[in-house]
Design a protein around this nucleic acid. Structure first.
Lengths: 236, 236
DNA sequence: GCTTGAACCTCACGCGACGGGAGGTCCTAC
DNA sequence: GTAGGACCTCCCGTCGCGTGAGGTTCAAGC
């Protein structure tokens, strides 16, 4: 007794949809080796076996093209798996970085300050020239995305504490605030490193940010935090 | 002096592409409030500000629709961020699960056994009837994806050890192998839980499984591992 | 004022992995 | 013989743009 499967039965058995099987057929990944005279697909045992192989590889997160490559020469499975593992590791780091940023944002900010904090970060990141930005980007790539995100998270924490002091009316020359300003600069130093040009650009930073970005962009990029920080820096 | 930005300048300043700005305009997310008589976009300071808000929200991994919603009523930022954090957490767990599976596969298997191991898992998962499968799926949903992936990782480890014993010529009634067969059944029990029908299906011996799977599917689902396991089980 | 090359404009197709529906044919059980 | 479910082949939609194609406009240098 020869065993043949209809597309619907195979879909039920495999947990895939009929449309997915159609798609695999369309792109030539898994098809039915036989058809009835009227054109209905009839999957042979070999077809079914291939489908299960495809499904198991897909469950590892491979793309259909990667699955095709893996099955075309099964001795290449190991390098493909290693590449996939590397890709997943990178993805995990990115997701973790986003999570830590979001967590820092949610923990430390009121609903109203959320958006303005984001804006401030976003604008500051755009402050440098295109060349300097690409410099920063390659530096960030060298550090690795997770280190950069840690810096950003620390930055967020600093902003949070400074805002709180401002709201509490702590004077800018209070030692705690002065200490925060020191941390701020030390964080910034990790961004610009030793590059004199970038350092100079960053040194112009906040006062000029306030003056030039506000006029360039046309709205006050500062809700008081920047001048507060400047006062703390002056009190050192 | 009124400040207006051309699309190219704004693209450079923001680090986005002209095409991206076109796209944001097309979908009505961020447009230029003004145009020259000939139709060139002229971005106003308010437009630029909105663009930076969009960019900062996008960097948190929100979709464009989510960004639109977040900006339409900025008091809804916090729930949106919380939802995003939850989504990222779930994603992180899935990625981690895949990573552990891949790591287990790569560590414990030769190039040749990689695919057959995957096949074995894939077929086993599909062995039950459609009803039982949907039962298993809802149970898997209750356990959560990471728990299911842990089970699969443990399973892989078992397969690895069993294959090694097979290759080493360890007799199936060796106490170590018998113990592995016990672990196998206990693992399987976590899949089928207390459902008597599923339990019954799983309780049928692997020899029977082999016969039944092989005829149902139409190719030998076993490369020796299953009968080895059956022999170990018989020796208890 | 004229030229020329860069910047800008509006379509419009493409990607990955299918979902979903339209409109028609076929199979199977009663 | 008939009904209704299963199957067939198009074909459009998703998401966030990339990448042209083909035409117009701007700005700088002569």
């Amino acid at each position: 007794m020869v065993t043949r499967w209809s597309i619907g039965d195979l879909a039920k058995a495999s947990g895939l949809t009929v449309r997915t099987l159609h798609h695999y057929d369309e792109i030539g990944l898994v098809g039915a080796s036989e058809r009835t005279t009227s054109g209905h697909r009839r999957y042979t045992p070999d077809d079914v076996r291939r489908l299960y192989q495809v499904r198991s590889l897909r469950q590892l997160g491979l793309s259909l093209e990667e699955v095709r490559a893996a099955l075309s020469r099964s001795d290449s499975l190991r390098p493909i798996f290693e590449a996939q593992l590397a890709a997943l590791t990178a993805q995990a780091q990115q997701v973790e970085a986003l999570r830590s940023r979001l967590t820092a944002l949610l923990d430390g900010h009121t609903t109203e300050s959320l958006l303005s904090t984001l804006e401030l970060m976003s604008v500051y990141e755009s402050y440098f020239t295109a060349d300097q930005l690409s410099e920063l980007r390659s530096r960030a790539a060298a550090l690795g995305p997770e280190a950069v995100e840690e810096l950003k998270a620390s930055w967020l924490e600093l902003v949070r504490q400074l805002r709180r002091h401002m709201a509490d009316g702590t004077p800018a020359d209070d030692p705690r605030v002065v200490e925060l300003s020191r941390q701020w600069d030390s964080l910034a130093a990790q961004f610009h490193h030793d590059d004199p040009e970038i350092k100079a650009a960053a040194a112009r930073s906040w006062e000029e940010n306030k003056a030039s970005i506000s006029t360039q962009i046309g709205w006050p990029a500062d809700d008081g935090l920047v001048s507060y920080l400047g006062a703390a820096r002056a009190a050192r």
